[in-house]
Every structure is written in structure tokens, then in C-alpha cells.
Design a protein around this nucleic acid. Structure first.
Lengths: 364, 364
DNA sequence: CTGTTAGCGCCTTCAC
DNA sequence: GTGAAGGCGCTAACAG
């Protein structure tokens, strides 16, 4: 006489289903796990028993014995940022299509959080990790190396020089150069860069600035290089006063653009490397009673529905967010399925969406 | 003679750490698991052995034997929507502060996906679930009921009438009423509602419209009710032509606002229930050569940095996104820690941020 | 205080 | 074809 299953605490187990169906555990496991061979008749009995009991396989137990979790871990700076939200969606879409779940963690641009997040994923035994890392120096990659020892890792959005990994990015440097070039072609020579390295005051020399940039977020450094490239090509001297300093917040961007607007030989154009930098700059313009593109030209990173409905509409750089995520997931999944990791950099194309925020500088 | 641990495949286990430290497995488990008592000396040996081997606890195995995962599951419509991104951040922040990880899944407003997501969370044995469900009718809540049988569940953003659960929302109806009231006070009587129930053509009568709304997203229905409340209070007759029909996309909003602008007795104000509806409406205004607030007034749901930098800045309803998530997590965590589930509705306050997109209607 | 032992739920040889 | 038995890595009683 079997024990009363309805009294069983907790969710029904495979043994209970087996008992209910009057078969052995292995038979129940085979039909429920979808492997091995089971006669149609027993199969049917097991299925209806499972149905009746409301059986759901314990993914934890399954992972324990198989060693795989069919789960990908994703670490990004801020899931609330539309850019990362798009990337994550790309990752989720393609991994789900290939039978994988996704766990995503936000670090809010904090390395401690990033390390903690990596550990969480390792502990939960994900099969692979995709990470947009804030790490740059050799001293900051230990957690990623540790992860690499256990599972395949691919980098997205941000390259890390010290790591030999598959990496999916856009050409930030070239995208920035193209945008600033457009500003220069329109006649601008005093072009503000928002935002720069998060230091109290940017270094006075190009060399130091670049060194500074290398110690910070990869994307920021690349975009700064692109800005300098365009300046160099046009033989426009670099002016440290035109590079934003301080923390990367909307408020700070407003303050810095206000400053650049107040100096004698004021800026006539701004190049913003992020969405919050754009709104921050826009606030400064309004406060100064200036309007674009008449008084000042503006180009920013990360196009959005808002940028298109601004009056006039904003010229922006659009990143292929979904593709970035999709590609990263694809590369990772391929590796999981046995492909040799290419350890190469996959560069996707961004696009400069030309609208109406750029015209010639005002005649001074 | 112990086997060569360095040859061990896979991540180091607690047994290997124990062997390395020369203690019993239980002692290693106790120090690494942070429970029970271990002498300082052995403790130290275990710790350094773990360090040396790069030991990380297998969260799966741990969950298996303890029965808890210290993980919360979250299901939202679209993590890419700034509203949900904010809510999720609120959830993550408070759950992490209380020692819980978070798994978040997006359903993209699709009930099938929502059911699948629920199953994933159940299978992964999360300790509790927070869900912004698209379910409304009694026939659509089976998956939530199934989840409730296993773990505590709390609803966020969207109430579900058929479910007796802790629910964290804002008063959508009142927020909408307040906004529309402001429009009416300014003198408007022809006020467009964007967007409405996703049907090809909204019903001609109030009664049917409301019935229709009840069959769709809870928030949408509430906001529609608020719109009607305000109309009623002002004894303004309801005109079905002023309610958007069709799929809820930016493009569709543009088309519908264009339509409302083209009818003889055209709208002089628009009330938008979502961010994409706002940008869609704005596109229609531009196409019609109209500008706000002079030609038309506008209020929308979900304030953002963009809304503040528009020229003129937009009057918007701001939801307490972070608090919504934080409260939901708090209620859930309290329940997990033994508090009796209140099964009540927690209503948070939204705010109407008055800026400059509303003025009196143009003299016709 | 520490080590031994028995599961957690599932998958997986291996005989029957 | 199907069932019994062992093991994944960990926790938790229970001895000692």
C-alpha cells in the first residue's frame, strides 16, 4: 500500500509520478526527460500521472546530474539603459530560440558589483557568460579569468585588451570620428566632447588625456580617440577645455556644457557620447537661451524615438543593439555546441542618422 | 595516497577542499557554508585550501539539500521599457540588500511567453515570484495559480481581479482622471485617448468600450476609466472616434492621432497612456504642421529625461518606478521570512509633473 | 568540536 | 523495454 501522495510536502517528484503511474522511476524519468525508449502505453500512463500531480521537473536536480543548466548568464552595466536593454533582448531572443534561459545581472558600472555578479553566475553553474565589462586594466580582470576557467565567456559592447576572448562590439572610434567629421565639415572648429574620463579635471595634454582614457571605460576611450582623430585630420588644435570633466551624470553634463558655452571662444558644436549626455547638453542650451542647430550643432550617441521627435530632430548615432546581443549569444552558443572559440573581435556597423541638429556655426 | 586533485575534471568540490585541508567533509562544509562551529585553526586551513583550489560553492547542490535558492523570479512585459527597467531595478536593489539574487524574464506582452516564463521560474525553484501579468480573465490565470501553489507570488504594476494576492500598483484611474481634468480645466472638450484597447475599431458605446477594456491590460483599462471619469465629471459627451484603435505601436498612434486631427470637429488635446504613444502623437503633430501647446495640448504617461528637454517641455505623469519594485520585493521577502501574506493592494502615488505642453485650445 | 552517514531529485549505466 | 542502484555536491542529523 503506497503512502498517501497527496500528503507529500513540496512539489511532486519523479518517484511520486512513477508510483502514481505504477512504473519504475527510470521509466518515468525517461518519458519525462524525453530520452531513452518507453513503450507508448507506459508513456501515456506516466504522462497522465504527471499531469494529474502537476509534475514539473526540478531543473536544479537535473543540472546536478547532467552538469549543464541550459542557462546563459549576462552581466551589463545597467539594464535600465535602453542600449543595454536592447542588447539583452537580442541575447534573450536568440538564446531562447536555441533552448537556453538567461539570467541577467546589472552592475551599475561598479566593479565590485561586477565581481559579485560573476560569482553568482558561476555559483549557479550557468553554461556560459556574456559580459559588458567595466574592467580595463590587467589588475581588474581576475574575475573574468576565473569565469573563463570554468565556462566560455564572450564580451559584448566593451572590449578588454588584457583578455583574449570573442568580443562583439561596434567601431566606436570610427563612429565618433564620422560624427565629429560631419561637424567639422559643417564649419565647426570649437567642438565640445561630452562626456570624457570621469576625473575632476581633464589633463592638459593630448597624450595624458589618452592615457587617462585608457584607464577608463573602453567605449569612452574609443569615442574620445575618434574625436581626436577627426580633429587631427582637420588640423584643429585640441583644447582640453572642451572636454567634459567629472562624473558622468546628466547634471554634470549640463554644468560642463554651460561652462564650455561661457568661455570666450565658446563651443559652436557638441558631441555627446551617451543619451544622458545629450539631455544634459540640451538643458544647458535652454538655460543659455540657445537653440540648435542655429546657435549650436549637436550630435549624440544612441538614437531613440525621442531624438526623432525633438524639434528640430536630432542627428544621432544608432547602434545595432539587438544585433550586438544576438551575435554575442550566437557566438557563445556555437562555442557551447562544440565550435572552437574564435577569440576574435566581431565588429558590427553603427549608423549616423542624419536629421537636423547640425548646420554651420553662427557667424561670429 | 590521495588522487591527484589537480587532475580533477570540473570545478573543485567541497570534498576536494576537505581533502586538501586534511579535514572531514562536514568541517569543510561548515566553514564554507558559514554554519555550525569550527575551530579557528581548522577553519583557517579550510579557507586557504578553498582559496588555493579556487573553490566556489555549487549553488545548485546547496539549493537541492536546503530546499531554498535565495533567488527571486521576476516576470515583466518588457525589460527594455524604461518603466519596467526602473521597477526591476527597485526589485533587484532591495532583494540584493536582503541576500537574494534575481532572475528576470520578459514576456513581450505575450501570454504564451508569460506561461513559459512562469514554468522556467518554477523549474529553477525560485523562492518567490513577482509578476506584472498580462492576464485578466479567469481563464488566463492558471499559470499564476500553479505558481502560487508552490511559492509566494506578488503582483506588480498590474492587478489581476481573479487573484487574491499582494499587489503593488499606482492608482492609474485617478492619475488619468487628474491629467484629463487638467486638460478640461484648460478649456479642452475634444480630447483624444491614445492608446485604447487593441481592437480594430473601438465600440461605439461607453458600456461596450468599458467591457472591452476589462478584457485587456489592467492598466489600460484603468486609465481609460479615468479618462471617462473626467469626461463625466465635466459632462462632456464621450465620442468613440476620439479613442485610438488598433495595435499599440508608435506607428499606429501616429496614424490614429492624424485621424483624430482630420475629423471635422478635431481634437484639441491628446492624452497618451504610454511613452511610445507620446512619441507617436508628436510625429502626427509635426506631420500636420501643428505645434503644442498652441495648436494642441498634450499629457502623457511615464515621465523621462527627454520629456523635460523637449521644447516646450512636456507635462507628464511620473510613476514611482523604483518604489514600485522595491515595495513588491519587500512584501515578497517579508512573506518569505514568515510574515503572513497580506493579500492586499498597495497603492503608491504617482505625480503629475506640470510643465508646458498644456494651454487653452485655439479659438476656433 | 569534528567526522560519518543519509538523503535532496534527477540521470544513467547495468542487469533483468 | 524496463527496473534497480549509484552518484552529482551539498546540508543536516547523529555519533563520538
Amino acid at each position: 500500500m503506497p503512502a498517501d501522495r497527496s500528503q507529500a510536502p513540496g512539489p511532486p517528484t519523479i518517484s511520486e509520478v512513477a508510483a502514481e503511474a505504477g512504473v519504475g522511476r527510470a521509466t518515468a524519468a525517461r518519458t519525462l526527460g524525453g530520452y531513452g525508449y518507453v513503450s507508448p502505453e507506459l508513456r501515456e500512463r506516466v504522462l497522465s500521472a504527471a499531469e494529474k500531480l502537476g509534475y514539473r521537473a526540478n531543473a536544479l536536480a537535473r543540472s546536478m546530474s547532467t552538469g549543464v543548466s541550459h542557462t546563459l548568464g549576462v552581466i551589463v552595466a545597467d539594464i535600465g539603459n535602453p542600449f543595454f536593454a536592447g542588447v539583452v533582448r537580442g541575447i534573450c531572443d536568440t538564446s531562447r530560440a536555441r533552448g537556453f534561459d538567461t539570467i541577467v545581472l546589472s552592475t551599475y558600472e561598479n566593479l565590485e558589483e561586477e565581481i559579485a555578479a560573476t560569482n553568482v553566475l558561476i555559483d549557479k553553474r550557468v553554461d556560459g557568460v556574456i559580459i559588458a565589462s567595466a574592467a580595463v586594466g590587467r589588475g581588474e580582470v581576475a574575475h573574468i579569468k576565473a569565469a573563463m576557467d570554468r565556462v566560455p565567456v564572450v564580451l559584448v559592447d566593451r572590449a578588454v585588451a588584457a583578455l583574449d576572448l570573442d568580443t562583439v562590439v561596434i567601431d566606436n572610434r570610427d563612429a565618433a570620428r564620422e560624427a565629429v567629421e560631419m561637424l567639422i565639415t559643417a564649419g565647426h572648429r570649437r567642438i565640445g566632447f561630452v562626456w570624457g574620463p570621469p576625473v575632476a579635471k581633464p589633463p592638459a595634454t593630448r597624450r595624458e588625456l589618452l592615457a587617462q582614457a585608457s584607464r577608463n571605460l573602453w567605449t569612452d576611450g574609443e569615442r574620445l580617440r575618434g574625436y581626436l582623430d577627426a580633429l587631427d585630420d582637420a588640423r584643429i588644435p585640441f583644447d582640453p577645455e572642451l572636454v567634459m570633466a567629472g562624473r558622468k551624470t546628466e547634471e554634470r553634463a549640463t554644468a560642463e556644457v554651460a561652462r564650455m558655452l561661457a568661455i570666450p571662444d565658446r563651443i559652436t558644436a557638441v558631441f555627446c557620447t551617451e543619451t544622458d549626455a545629450v539631455t544634459g547638453a540640451l538643458r544647458a542650451l535652454r538655460a543659455a537661451g540657445l537653440s540648435y542647430p542655429r546657435d549650436i550643432a549637436l550630435i549624440g550617441f544612441d538614437d531613440s524615438a525621442w531624438a526623432a521627435v525633438m524639434e528640430p530632430p536630432l542627428t544621432m548615432i544608432a547602434q545595432p543593439v539587438h544585433e550586438l546581443g544576438a551575435k554575442a549569444a550566437q557566438v557563445l552558443l556555437d562555442t557551447l555546441e562544440g565550435a572552437e572559440p574564435g577569440r576574435e573581435t566581431h565588429t558590427l556597423r553603427s549608423r549616423l542618422i542624419v536629421r537636423a541638429s547640425v548646420s554651420a556655426p553662427p557667424a561670429s
